[in-house]
């Protein structure tokens, strides 16, 4: 394997959590998530030459991965196999890890109903990006990022409440 390719795949392995989260936020069915994962890695590889070593790989990766998710569409023929993402065993257990998993399951279920841009806003917020950085990433002003994020969070809160989960 060429060293450039190996370097790329090693970096992807290190930062695959970003791809995992974006795929789960943007696609509900597992097959679509896998397709999006593939597409993101492919687009990252295609853009890899444009990656400037002076910037952080993860910063660059966020941008390409999010842009890919924004323009990715699921396969038409695939029927929505959205299962209720709340496995029973989670709901009945009450240790901390299970509680976190349940919260996350509610979050991912609710987030599916947001618009594409709103998902990107929430994603970057959860990744601890400032409003300024969010704006830069999405090509909108800092003020606009703040307002839109606040609206997206309110919407998300409402959606989670509708699932019967305390927020």
């Amino acid at each position: 394997m060429k060293s450039r390719e190996k370097e790329f795949l090693d970096l992807i392995e290190t930062h695959k959590g970003i791809i995992h989260k974006i795929s789960k936020m943007y696609m509900d069915a597992e097959d679509d998530q896998q397709d999006l994962t593939q597409e993101i890695i492919y687009q990252l590889w295609k853009s890899f030459d444009s990656f400037q070593q002076q910037s952080r790989f993860s910063t660059w990766m966020y941008r390409v991965a999010l842009n890919t998710a924004l323009v990715f569409f699921k396969k038409e023929k695939r029927k929505l196999a959205v299962t209720d993402m709340m496995p029973e065993h989670i709901a009945t257990e009450d240790n901390v890890a299970a509680a976190k998993e349940l919260q996350l399951a509610h979050f991912y279920k609710a987030v599916q109903k947001l618009e594409r841009i709103e998902k990107a806003l929430v994603f970057l917020h959860l990744e601890n990006y400032s409003h300024k950085e969010i704006g830069e990433n999405l090509g909108i002003s800092e003020g606009n990022a703040r307002t839109k994020l606040s609206r997206a969070k309110d919407k998300l809160k409402e959606l989670i409440k509708q699932q019967g989960y305390e927020f």
Binding site: E5, L9, E13, G17, H20, S23, Q38, E39, I41, F72
Partner: peptide, 18 residues
């Protein structure tokens, strides 16, 4: 993020979804 399978080579990547 264990379910993310990074391919062993970029040739294995398939795309036509955009």
């Amino acid at each position: 993020d264990d379910n993310v399978v990074v391919p062993s080579s970029v040739d294995q990547l398939k795309t036509l979804q955009l």
